[in-house]
Amino acid sequence: MPGGESTTILKLMQKFNLAIPLKELARSGLPIWGTCAGMICLAKGVYNGMEGLAVMDMSVKRNAFGNQINSFESNLPIPPLGDEPFPAVFIRAPFIERAGPRVEILARLPEGTAVAARQGKLLATAFHPEFTSDLRVHSYFLKMATSPERRQ
């Protein structure tokens, strides 16, 4: 699920009857990766009046770093991807405020903020790996998607 304006995405999902089928697909084990607004869509909670799909047991904070002038790039350590930090691009990004026991936090910013997580075959990143040429998160998602692991 792509980045963009989460309010718009969630409204259109509701209007064109995508929310319930997507929830069911996620619960039946379809691998889904959400970046930025996509991460908000996967989360539990109400965001600018719109409910997330609540398929991952976590709540996030929207626009958590402030206005666009605070958007940033950061070399982010993501242990499952190896020692080399990942060039993470945060655009008016959210972060993970609370995560339940089934959610594994994959990456944190230096101050401790959680910005990537996995629950079964669901992956969420607050940043945009698709804006860089580093394909390691894409590879990680493909491996995750094809692994025989049980559903969440």
């Binding site: 963009g4 958007s71 940033f72």
Partner: peptide, 20 residues
Amino acid sequence: MNKGTWTTKTGLARSLKGGV
């Protein structure tokens, strides 16, 4: 941490794609 880069600038525009 770098702010106001070409990637963060064009990135916001890309996030608006398909929108009004």
